[in-house]
Amino acid sequence: MTEKRLKTGPDFIWRDMEVGNIVTEAGSAALRRTGDWRSQRPIIDKERCNKCGLCWLYCPDVAIKLLEDGYYETDLFYCKGCGICAKVCTREAITMIEEEEE
């Protein structure tokens, strides 16, 4: 994941405010990392995965991405580690592991 930066803090001066504080760049919050909230992370076992997509469907954080081969991967830049994906997986293909474990 490439390092993304936002113009905030000392870089952002009052002249940078758009009229009426309007944000003209749609979806710009996608630059924000929420992966660092995580205390546990999902590990997807490709062997068990049947590409059903339920993990993708139920993820509140849009942190499961569909790959070209039809499998799914977690986007750890965003994944907050809630564990919903592991819970809804009918094949037990997703395990949550503690963040400090490698």
Binding site: T8, W14, M17, N21, I22, V23, A26
Partner: peptide
């Protein structure tokens, strides 16, 4: 109105101002 809400160019009106930006706004 130059910032009219339209699906052609989606804008966000009325985002909230955290302390690091409210004063500037």
């Amino acid at each position: 109105y130059p910032f009219a809400l339209t699906p052609d160019k989606p804008m966000t009106h009325g985002a909230f101002g955290p302390p690091d930006i409210y004063s500037e706004a």
